[in-house]
Amino acid sequence: MEGTHGGEKTKSRLCSICNQRRPALRRPKTLEQICRECFYVVFEDEIHSVIVNNKLFKPGERIAIGASGGKDSTVLAYVMSELNRRHKYGLDLFLLSVDEGITGYRDDSLETVKRNEIQYGLPLKVVSYKDLYGWTMDEIVKMIGLKNNCTFCGVFRRQALDRGAALLKVDKLATGHNADDIAETVLLNILRGDIARLSRCTSIITGEDGPIPRCKPFKYTYEKEIVTYAYFKKLDYFSTECIYSPNAYRGFAREFIKDLERIRPRAILDIIKSGEDFRIAPSTKMPEQGTCQRCGYISSQKWCKACVLLEGLNRGLPKLGIGRTRGVVNPKDDQVKSKPCGSLDF
C-alpha cells in the first residue's frame, strides 16, 4: 500500500532517529517511529529553520503572538518563547487576544490565555469587540441569528488584531495557522474560483504593505504534530469549537484533507507546494488600497468592511454589506451617529 516511504522498514523497537530509546509515537509527517525526545527536537528544529530560512523576524523586534487559547496558538507561544531563548532571536514577545464576547466559549479560553501569560512569562493584551465596536458576538448573534455571523466575527477579528498590535507597538504579528489550514485554504480558493486569494494564501508573510505584517511560523507544521506536541508536553490549552460556527463548507475540505493525509501524509505539503508554484500572472489585479474615511483603517473602498457591517448593526439593518450587492452603500451624515470602530491612527 501507500505510505511505505517513511521509515517503516525498521522493525526494531528503537527510535529511528537516535536508535537508543523506545519509540513513543509514529511521526504524523513521515510515519517514522521515534521517541518523545527526538520528536521534540525535530518538531522545534523544523520551526526554527522555517523562521531562519524565511527571515521571519529580525533581532530586537517586538512580536505579538495571536493567542486564542487553542492548541495552535498555545503551542506557538510555547515554542516561540523556547526558540527565542535557545537561539537568541532577541525578540520581545507578547500575547495578543481578542475577546469576541462569546459566553461559554471565549470567556473560558481567555482564562487559558491568562494562565499561559503566567506560565510562559509573556505579557498579555486583550482587545474586545465590546470596547472596539460596542457589540459582543452574543449581541450580534441575538440580532442576526446564526447565518452570516462568522462574516462579522472574521472581519472584526482581523481589525481587532491589528488594533491590538498597534496598541502593543509591535512590528509583527505571528499567528498559529498550521499546514493543514493553509492546504485547506488553497483547496477552498480553487473551489471558489478566487485566483487572487489563491496566489496570496501560501505566503508565509502577508500584509507587508499594511499596518502590521503577519507571519505563520507553523506554515509547514502538521496539525496532528501540534496536538501531539501539546499532549506530550502537557500544555494547557482550550479545546472547544466555537459555539457559533457550524460551518459545513470548510468541513468538506477539512475532511478531504484528513482522508488524504491518511493514505499519503505528504499530500498536505504537496498542496502547499502546488499553491506556491501555481503560475499566476502578477498582473492579476489587486484592489487599490486606501484608508477608511470613517476609522482610518486600510480599505479599498470608501468605508472599510468593518465600518459597513457596524453601520448595518447600528441602524438595525444587519444585511448591509452581506450578500450579493457589490460595492459600498452610501453613508449619509444624518444617520444615527454610531460609535466608530476604534480611534487609533494607522
Binding site: 477552498l188 471558489r192 502577508t206 470548510r250
Partner: peptide, 22 residues
C-alpha cells in the same frame, strides 16, 4: 484575510457568488 478560518461567508465568497451569479 484568506486563512483565518472564518469560513465561506467572508468577503471573498460573497464577491465570488456575485461573480457566479453574473
Amino acid at each position: 484575510m484568506a486563512c483565518n478560518g472564518t469560513g465561506c461567508q467572508s468577503g471573498g465568497c460573497y464577491k465570488d457568488n456575485a461573480g457566479d451569479e453574473e
